[in-house]
């Protein structure tokens, strides 16, 4: 009851007057967002930084150890493999997702029968929960019962089965294939939205002037689509760089660490071994690389927009 008495109740008039002041209104409108960002982004991030400079284990509060964890992971050969894998994985999948997504968007931008249905259908890989679709892929790559091997064998492409997830090189390629399969619809639909903002008159005018399809794409479509492309790529790079589920389900980082990414190795150390501080250090090691990529891309987007 004491609480109720202590509450300061402003008269309705003065409350309205306060919100008429733009500074207060802006503040009031920003508070929910700031609280959400603070709770779910800033706090975990700051907590992650703190963990990485301590020797915290699960259930054991740590003490400050400076950069010891970073030194340890830097000298860890599995970490180096994970760094290389993550960069290579992100680069290759991004190139493929962008090219295939753009190609698909151009096709979907044309008029044909069943256009709406096809557009919805294309989104399926993106809609299905990742873990579920990845399990389906796991079955397709199964060393004993692979449907892919069966098909390739039936059409005479292979004479003995391919060890999709057991061969170190093929395993990373297989994981990339699944990532590309899942990521292409996101590119396709977003780029399609971008394509639809480009006035058809521009292309028609160029066609009348004798421009070939490739010239029309290169001089009209691509420059106008570039800002959207850059934003999509930015999102995709961030997501791919921090990918976890695909590798966790398909290979668990194996064989012999050939498919470990930052996130899977951080999980292995943080949760599997209880070394929260080292797991945090590995996760944070992602940050400078990602930060650099994002800055470069954002600067580029700004330049494109100004132009």
């Amino acid at each position: 009851m004491a609480i109720a008495q202590a509450t300061i109740v402003l008269p309705a008039k003065s409350r309205t007057r306060l919100l008429e002041d733009e500074r207060w209104l802006a503040f009031a409108l920003l508070v929910p967002t700031a609280v959400l960002l603070g709770l779910f982004i800033a706090y975990p991030f700051v907590n992650g930084i703190w963990l990485s400079v301590t020797d915290t284990r699960v259930g054991v509060p740590g003490e400050f150890v400076g950069l010891k964890n970073f030194y340890k992971v830097w000298n860890d050969s599995i970490f180096r493999v994970a760094v290389w894998n993550t960069c290579w994985y992100t680069l290759v999948t991004t190139v493929f997702k962008l090219s295939l997504g753009l190609w698909l968007a151009m096709l979907l931008n044309r008029s044909f029968k069943g256009k709406a249905f096809t557009r919805a259908f294309i989104l399926l890989p993106f809609i299905i929960p990742t873990v579920l679709s990845t399990f389906a892929w796991k079955w397709m790559f199964d060393p004993t019962f692979s449907v892919l091997n069966w098909m390739l064998f039936q059409i005479g492409f292979i004479t003995k089965r391919v060890n999709w997830l057991g061969d170190p090189d093929l395993a990373l390629v297989s994981v990339m294939v699944v990532n590309i399969w899942r990521g292409v619809p996101f590119y396709a639909i977003t780029l399609l939205a971008g394509l639809q903002t480009i006035s058809p008159e521009l292309n028609e005018a160029a066609a009348i002037d004798g421009a070939r399809p490739w010239q029309r794409f290169w001089h009209i479509t691509w420059p106008l689509l570039l800002p959207v492309t850059m934003v999509v790529t930015l999102f995709s790079v961030i997501q791919t760089f921090a990918d976890f589920q695909l590798v966790y389900v398909l290979t668990g980082g194996g064989p012999a660490n050939a498919t470990h990414l930052f996130a899977t190795y951080a999980y292995q150390l943080g949760v599997g071994t209880g070394l929260l501080s080292e797991g945090a250090a590995i996760s944070l090691a992602m940050f400078p690389i990602l930060f650099l990529v994002v800055i470069v891309q954002l600067l580029y987007i700004r330049r494109v927009e100004v132009r």
Binding site: T144, N163, W164, G166, G254, P255
Partner: peptide, 18 residues
């Protein structure tokens, strides 16, 4: 069976039973 590089803990059950 060289597929064992990518087996999880249930693969050998399935392979044996099949």
């Amino acid at each position: 069976d060289e597929g064992g590089f990518s087996w999880d803990d249930s693969n050998n059950n399935r392979a044996f039973l099949s």
